[in-house]
């Protein structure tokens, strides 16, 4: 599953970050700000009608990401 489909307020872990074909540099940027394998991720907020940027907590920082950035981040569920 990828971050753009993740449900709200649920804890996930980062499985990996894909390189997008059109802008491969985005992957490195996402890693730099903390989307690294094993890191805890929660979606805090989505836009109206599920459109627009999402608010994500990764580790202990909060980031606003666009949909095209979120869909590069692969997640795995965390056993409760």
């Amino acid at each position: 599953m990828f971050l753009d489909q993740a449900s709200l307020d649920t804890l996930f872990r980062v499985k990996g970050v894909l390189a997008s074909e059109t802008s491969p540099e985005v992957r490195g940027q996402l890693e730099d700000i903390g989307f690294l394998t094993g890191e805890q991720v929660t979606v805090l907020r989505k836009g109206l009608f599920g459109k627009g940027p999402i608010l994500v907590r990764v580790g202990s920082s909060t980031f606003a990401l666009r949909e095209n950035e979120a869909k590069l981040i692969e997640l795995e569920t965390v056993a409760p």
Binding site: S20, T22, I33, L55, T62, F63, A64, R66, E69
Partner: peptide, 10 residues
């Protein structure tokens, strides 16, 4: 065409 947001909210 892909433009980044990736903005930290402190």
């Amino acid at each position: 065409k892909v433009n980044a947001l990736m903005m930290e909210l402190p």
